[in-house]
Design a protein around this nucleic acid. Structure first.
Length: 263
DNA sequence: AAACTGAGCAACCGCCGTATC
DNA sequence: CGATACGGCGGTTGCTCAGTT
């Protein structure tokens, strides 16, 4: 389908927002509510494109936004949810009140990836993002897309095709997820509408990371390691290592179910 | 003190799915 | 039923600033 650019860009401001622009936007939205982003800038007297306004509002001006100081709990949750959902930042953000997808994405790319790597944990990021985050960005401008960023949900593996996988519908496969102790302690009292472990694994499979996302690094991270060790991506080394502790699985699964319901 | 380097983060870009016409 | 608008998402870029040489 054809689709015109969101804005003509002609005569529109770009770059950092000024306090005045923030005010204009905030005031307008407080009066008229969100939505109609395309026409909003004009009505609000902003020389910005609608997308830019939306982004600014969603990420910074919206009431209840927390900035910075991501707590250990939040960090743990991010890691777990990332294991579940992959780079679905908006979903992850949905589980962290006051946090935005952009912030979480940035935090992941700048802090967590580094932390995981420092802990000897390899995080596979099919496509190119890994390079950008690890070795530090720049270059390769405009090789965007087509390479598929998110290997977890957008399939693709490492080549160019796009095989998109949408929110999974559970189907049965055999459970196979490695236990990661720290996650037991992390798992916050998940409800237990849960059920069949096989079904759970199926969901992981459906999301695309099963069963390899969590894989205990044999050498093991000690308590001081990130998350107490255990978050190891990506490869399944063996079926043995993904033995059958379903405890963590159940908890995470419950969360995941909630996620599905919420969305 | 200046130049250089790298990390962090705000913002942009392009694509997608859905709604509407 | 196709075209377009819209909202949203994830990946990437590029500016800024702190740390290092």
């Amino acid at each position: 389908m054809g689709r015109s650019p969101c804005c003509s860009k002609v005569g529109l401001r770009r770059g950092p927002w000024s306090a005045k622009e923030d005010n204009l936007l905030t005031n307008y939205i407080q009066e008229h509510g969100e939505g109609q982003w395309r026409s909003l800038p004009k009505k609000a007297g902003l020389l910005r494109c609608g997308k830019s306004c939306r982004l600014r509002w969603m990420n910074y001006l919206r009431p209840g936004i927390k900035r910075g100081n991501i707590s250990q709990d939040e960090e743990d949750l991010i890691v777990r949810l990332h294991g579940l959902l992959g780079n679905r930042w908006s979903l992850i953000a949905g589980r962290l009140p006051g946090r935005t997808d952009n912030e979480i994405k940035n935090y992941w790319n700048t802090h967590l990836l580094k932390k995981l790597r420092t802990a000897g944990i390899e995080v596979s990021r099919p496509g190119k993002v890994a390079a950008a985050a690890a070795g530090k960005k720049k270059k390769n401008k405009k090789q965007k897309k087509g390479g598929g960023g998110d290997g977890v949900l957008k399939g693709n593996g490492s080549e160019g095709e796009k095989t998109k996988i949408y929110l999974p519908k559970p189907t049965r496969v055999s459970p196979a997820i490695a236990r990661v102790e720290s996650y037991d302690s992390l798992a916050s009292g998940a409800s237990s509408s849960s059920s069949n472990p096989g079904e759970k694994a199926a969901i992981y499979a459906a999301v695309g990371w099963a069963p390899a996302i969590f894989d205990v690094d044999g050498a093991g991270a000690g308590e001081d390691d990130f998350l107490g060790g255990g978050y190891v991506l990506p490869a399944i080394d063996s079926a043995d290592s993904i033995s059958s502790d379903v405890d963590m699985l159940e908890k995470v699964y419950d969360e995941y179910l909630q996620l599905l319901q919420e969305n």
